[in-house]
């Protein structure tokens, strides 16, 4: 039986500055089951990272506000925890791999120091045990442990991201959030790092949320997929629903349509027409209607409800 690890209900996050209010995440629902992986796909600015940072409650202080919703993790609502209790969860039960390995490691501390820190915070280990565990996780991510006394600037980008992964996995988290872990790496290294994350995730039976804008990555790694557009989840389901299902949200269709087909001699790429709306000036009704090829009158007037086809959710008037 699948056991729920994380449940996001009706989450709404805004960024408020003096000039404008940005509706970054709008009433999303998400479920993640133990041992499974969920891919969140969407363009830049769709609210993927905001969703991730909401889970570990590290949204930019003062600017970001969670207006409503619940994030239930292991049967407790993370949004109601005190900062002190939240600290016990960060790095220990939920850990995160960040997008840019170049800037995510502290330049003045050795790699050993940075991995050991998270162990010292959460594990009741002695000095020797910590050292042993640091070597262990370094080996896990394929870094020779004699490099543990080096500083981040002595590592290449891909190696730095491996260190980031080692930090994230050091305390055996229940949930690993990987926020575009390979976007900043070059293509050859991307595949290596991605394979490693995939392999470690299934070996360690960690649940994972993988944030990406690359459908290929999701197809390779994830059990479940959620497609985000303008702060909403427009379609979600199993990888099979998304990649092989018959019904799709027009945005998902657009995403697939924009991947060039190698079998046909295509002169031009087929991008989705238009650009994503300014998140401070979202359109009325369905957020996607200005770019949608199937736009109807109701789409401009009313925001569609999500409809479920056996766990495959689509938020579109076409299917209501």
């Amino acid at each position: 039986m699948r056991e729920k690890l994380l449940e996001i209900r009706d989450l709404k996050v805004i960024y408020k500055t003096d000039e404008e209010t940005v509706e970054a995440v709008n009433n999303i629902d998400l479920d993640l089951y133990k041992g499974e992986s969920l891919g969140i796909v969407g363009e830049t600015g769709a609210g993927k990272t905001t969703t991730a940072l909401s889970i570990i409650r590290l949204l930019p202080y003062r600017v970001a506000k969670i207006l409503s919703g619940e994030i239930i993790f292991n049967e407790q609502n993370l949004l109601e925890l005190s900062e002190k209790d939240m600290r016990k969860i960060r790095g220990n039960n939920i850990s995160m791999i960040f997008q840019d390995p170049m800037s995510s490691l502290n330049p003045v501390l050795t790699v050993e120091d940075q991995i050991a820190e998270v162990l010292r915070l959460h594990m009741d280990y002695g000095k020797e045990m910590i050292k042993k565990r640091v070597k262990e996780v370094l080996q896990l991510v394929g870094i020779p442990h004699d490099r543990m006394f080096e500083y981040p600037h002595q590592f290449s980008g891909g190696m730095k991201q491996r260190v980031g992964i080692a930090i994230a996995l050091a305390c055996d988290p229940d949930l690993l959030i990987a926020d575009e872990p390979t976007t900043a790496l070059d293509v050859t290294i991307q595949a290596q790092v991605l394979n490693m994350i995939d392999e470690l995730q299934s070996r360690l039976k960690t649940s994972m949320i993988l944030i990406t804008h690359d459908l290929g990555v999701v197809a390779q790694t994830c059990d479940n997929v959620a497609i985000m557009y303008a702060g909403e989840i427009v379609e979600s389901g199993t990888a099979k629903d998304i990649f092989e299902g018959e019904r799709h949200h027009p945005y998902t269709e657009g995403l697939f349509g924009s991947i060039p087909n190698l079998d046909i001699d295509e002169k031009r790429l087929n991008p989705i027409q238009g650009v994503m709306p300014e998140p401070s000036m979202l359109p009325s009704g369905c957020r996607f209607h200005p770019r949608c090829p199937h736009c109807m009158d109701i789409c401009i007037a009313e925001s569609p409800q999500s409809k479920s086809f056996d766990g495959h959710h689509i938020k579109c008037h076409l299917f209501l």
């Binding site: 600290r87 960060r90 790095g91 850990s95 960040f98 995510s104 502290n106 330049p107 820190e117 930090i167």
Partner: peptide, 14 residues
Amino acid sequence: RTDYVRTARAKGAK
């Protein structure tokens, strides 16, 4: 505001 300070927070550091 740097990323590595966010990483430190994500580790659960005080």
